[in-house]
Design a binder for these strands. Structure first.
Length: 600
DNA sequence: GAGGTATAG
DNA sequence: TTTTCTATACCTC
């Protein structure tokens, strides 16, 4: 798929032929003359497919904990499902197990063989040893002290079967193939998902701890062989510093333009086993602008497969929406105005697509927020008084990337940084029955151009390689509950009175003044205390998807470890739906039941 | 709050 | 040409 002069992404067939992401078009054609390149400028379809993928996967799990990573990956926390099935597992007949997918309906689920893993494992099992570790789980299970390692073994097996089931459902019901990793946290499940791709799944086998009787931890073994830069959370800056350090260079004496994979061969083990290495040394090595406070211990954890980050529910609305374009040359005000106008039109359209929904009672609708079809043409900005805003951004930001001035000594400065200015977003952009073109026009004149002048005060002393226009600082309208999985709804309703003071949820609603906003800031979940997966090993799955055809379908399943059933913060004033288990205030249940009866 | 850095797909 | 177009979290001031 092409953007500008670049192949931005390609499917596995193309990769097998030697193509890769961010490759120049001409290179790609040379490598693979019969390549089919499609323009990939309009991502509307992909956004929609991504949303569909996410909603589908989320609908299959109990916890509501489904987190997106990009368009095509989803982490799922399925701990509760695994624990439920673990508790009712009959160890005398593992081969004839039934996996329950519904707490209250024992008919819902599938048959499976709990004496082995579904799909691949890492390390791969040469010989199928179906009964390993299970011998210790005797019929007297209840009175025996079963080791954490044995429980983890079974939980991961269950996870592997659930993953296989979900992948099958995804293919049957949605037509997406997928790749999945199953482990106890996001880091491990994502990485182990890479072991067999595409269209496959891999479970990271125990032991997760190194012990005298069991032996070396598979987690360490697995992590140790990873290139330092392949570890999620260690990007090019950190890996560069780590490489320099591990190779014995004085970080200050680092020289040479480090580009591409500069120096290879530095693995996680090289850093981990480096003399005197530890969180403090790492903190020292990695410190610098842009690194966060905790970098040392964070990276030290990553090297050991430790990742305490929980799986976060996706938000109803994004935190920001931005539209950008890059240019070979952009240095006149006339050109700039034209581009700002184009970007602003796009931005308004995206705001309507992603920040509004069809109006409906209780905010519990049939999920039909498909305004996409109306929003396509460049002038086709939706004008629809029956829609309402899900969130009002309060800030508009304009960023540019000035082309670095060529130095007199011929050396081109490498700095390629963005600069930005922001300002409150005027409320006229929320008028749903004004033509978008007029809104964009007004916005450019009154807000965007002044911002541009702030960024570039000299009338014609700029050469821009990029412009970005963004809206940020979303104020969500609290009557929507669809991303809460039921958990926060009690709290949201408690706040509704205050919220309604500020927001007209109708056609002409206007953003409240900044002074008026009440306690919406801490609408986030209570902070949970989390344990290290290695201290308390419990299975997690990550599913990633195959990158086939049009759709990148990476779904990551993470089976718990973060949430215990006793602290999920459900509000007291709520009932739960007998069909789907969603938690909601009693008065919302009637409408919710109608939703089940009439799904589309 | 404002502006910038780092990371990811 | 460290590139494309986004999105997020977190840093300092």
């Amino acid at each position: 798929m092409q953007q500008k002069h670049i192949i931005v992404t390609c499917n596995y067939a193309a990769r097998r032929r030697g193509l890769h992401k961010l490759q120049l078009i001409r290179e790609a054609r040379k490598t693979c003359p019969d390549v089919i390149i499609v323009l990939g400028e309009d991502l509307t379809r992909f956004r929609k497919a991504s949303k569909d993928l996410y909603n589908f996967l989320k609908s299959q799990i109990w916890s509501g904990r489904a987190e997106r990573l990009g368009f095509d990956e989803v982490f799922l926390d399925v701990s509760d499902i695994i624990d439920f099935n673990l508790n009712i597992l009959n160890y005398n007949s593992l081969s004839d197990s039934f996996f329950h997918l519904d707490r209250s309906d024992p008919e819902v689920g599938f048959l499976y063989d709990a004496s082995y893993y579904a799909g691949n494992t890492f390390p791969s099992s040469k010989l199928k040893d179906p009964c390993r570790a299970i011998s210790t789980l005797s019929p007297s299970f209840g009175t025996l002290s079963v080791s954490d390692a044995d429980i983890l073994e079974v939980r991961l097996r269950l996870g592997s079967h659930l993953a296989q089931y979900l992948r099958h459902q995804l293919e049957e019901q949605r037509g997406y193939t997928s790749t999945v990793g199953i482990s106890t946290n996001k880091l491990l499940s994502k990485l182990v998902g890479n072991v067999n791709k595409p269209n496959n799944q891999t479970t990271l086998r125990p032991p997760y701890l190194t012990t005298p009787d069991i032996g070396q931890s598979n987690v360490l073994m697995f992590m140790d062989d990873h290139e330092i830069g392949k570890i999620p959370g260690i990007g090019c800056k950190l890996s560069h510093k780590l490489r320099n350090y591990a190779l014995g260079h004085d970080p200050k004496l680092d020289e040479g333009p480090v580009w591409g994979p500069p120096r290879d061969g530095v693995k996680a083990r090289d850093v981990r086993l480096h003399p005197v290495m530890g969180p403090d040394v790492l903190a020292e090595v990695l410190k610098g602008p842009g690194s966060h406070k905790d970098t040392g211990s964070k990276v030290w954890g990553l090297l050991h497969g430790v990742d305490n980050a929980g799986i976060e529910r996706a938000r109803i609305v994004p935190r920001q929406i931005s539209i950008e374009d890059s240019y070979l040359r952009l240095d006149t005000l006339t050109q700039v105005k034209k581009e700002l106008y184009k970007l602003t039109i796009s931005l308004i359209r995206r705001m309507h697509l992603d920040l509004t929904e069809a109006d409906s009672d209780y905010g519990i609708d049939r999920g039909d927020d498909d305004v996409e079809d109306h929003g396509k043409g460049s002038r086709g900005i939706i004008v629809d008084a029956t829609r309402r805003w899900l969130a009002h951004p309060r800030t508009l930001r304009l960023s540019t990337r000035p082309r670095p001035p060529t130095q007199s000594d011929g050396t081109r400065s490498r700095a390629f940084k963005r600069i930005s200015r922001s300002t409150p977003l005027p409320s006229f952009v929320f008028r749903l029955n004004d033509p978008g073109v007029l809104i964009a026009d007004k916005l450019v004149d009154e807000v965007v151009l002044p911002l541009f002048s702030q960024l570039h005060p000299e009338a014609s002393d700029y050469d821009l390689s990029l412009i970005n226009v963004a809206v940020t600082d979303m104020m969500e309208t609290a009557s929507d509950n669809r991303n809460s999985g039921g958990r926060d709804i009690g709290r949201m309703f408690k706040r509704q009175d205050e919220v309604l003071k500020n927001w007209r949820v109708e056609d002409r609603d206007v953003a409240p003044s900044q002074d008026d906003r009440n306690g919406l800031d801490d609408i986030d979940r209570d902070t949970q205390s989390m344990k290290s997966p290695l201290e308390t090993p419990r299975p997690t799955e990550v599913a990633k998807g195959s990158e086939d055809e049009v759709l990148h379908t990476q779904a990551s399943l993470v089976d718990d470890m973060v949430w215990d059933s006793d602290d999920d913060g459900e509000p007291e004033l709520s009932g739960s739906c007998s069909t789907c288990g969603a938690i909601m205030p009693p008065f919302a249940m009637a409408a919710h039941e109608r939703f089940h009866l009439n799904p589309d």
